[in-house]
Design a protein around this nucleic acid. Structure first.
Lengths: 156, 156
DNA sequence: CCTTTTGTTTTGAGCAGATCAAAACATGCT
DNA sequence: AGCATGTTTTGATCTGCTCAAAACAAAAGG
């Protein structure tokens, strides 16, 4: 059955167009991953898997890694690794935004760089080093964790 | 035997002083790790283990992780995680220098930020987020890999 | 419309880095 | 020197990810 049903989870023409533009084949899994990343800002592979399985049950863990790797290679998805955490993925928007990682709860937020463009790209890099991207990660404590810490330890 | 021999691998009073300053006990392993990091700029746990074992054979992998974790918590050592690589450690010098990672060979070099101080610390962070450190990583191609790539693919 | 070719997903095994818990041990203090 | 605390070892375990080959689906061509 379902010989005529085209693809169970395909809904976004944006994702399909993006895939075609890069020369990758349009498959249900890839579209589902792209759409999942559309709604979830920066998630790890496990979260992507959970989101994808809502539409495509039976998707394997390895497939997620495979798809994510392909999308990263194709430039459709950006991968970054917060300190002490697993890799996270996001649809790249072209802007070079950075990330704020809470060292307490692990939460990740986007940060638009004040300079607007690429602030630190003109670093004093070793001679001959060609900078592709600058990964800027702000590590600190988010408001929630700060409040929680203050509540537990008001005045030492 | 060796009841009078104090510590097999202790040689640096700097390391001992640093340990005492933070309240940690001065042990052979910790001193050896600190001294290893003194000479090796940014190495992963495996490399630290190899260096430490030169002086203290029989040191276990877990001890290295344990010691490195303690030193990081104490602020004597800085840990950072280049994309797609294992964690690397370095003695922190107080300056906020950053890193250039070659995406081809994985090599890591130090980069002094041109601004001198902390350039991106005043980001438009989420309200209430307190920035502790800014991890800036330049991802690109080092001179060697660039030359190697050019040699293989001169003109397509 | 059906076949071929190419590429993708699954299946299954496996590795590296790191973490956790309890016992053996050394350090620092009295 | 002896005790209490803290550290290292031992051993098991876990997560995240990678690799290889077989089953499968998508795009191209007849």
């Amino acid at each position: 059955m379902t010989t005529t049903a085209p693809l169970p989870g395909v809904q976004g023409p944006d994702a399909q167009a993006a895939l075609r533009a890069t020369g990758l084949k349009v498959t249900a899994g890839r579209v589902a991953v792209l759409e999942a990343l559309e709604h979830a800002p920066h998630v790890d592979a496990e979260a992507v898997l959970a989101l994808v399985r809502d539409r495509l049950p039976g998707t394997s863990v390895q497939s997620i890694h495979n798809v994510l790797g392909d999308l990263v290679d194709a430039g459709l998805v950006r991968r970054f690794t917060p300190a002490r955490q697993s890799a996270r993925y996001e649809r790249r928007v072209g802007d070079n935004h950075h990330h704020a990682v809470c060292s307490s709860c692990g939460r990740v937020d986007d940060v638009d760089c004040v300079v607007g463009e690429a602030p630190c790209l003109h670093a004093d890099a070793p001679s001959g080093f060609v900078v592709a991207v600058a990964e800027v990660t702000f590590v600190g404590i988010c408001a929630d964790c700060l409040a929680a810490a203050a509540a537990e330890e008001p005045a030492p």
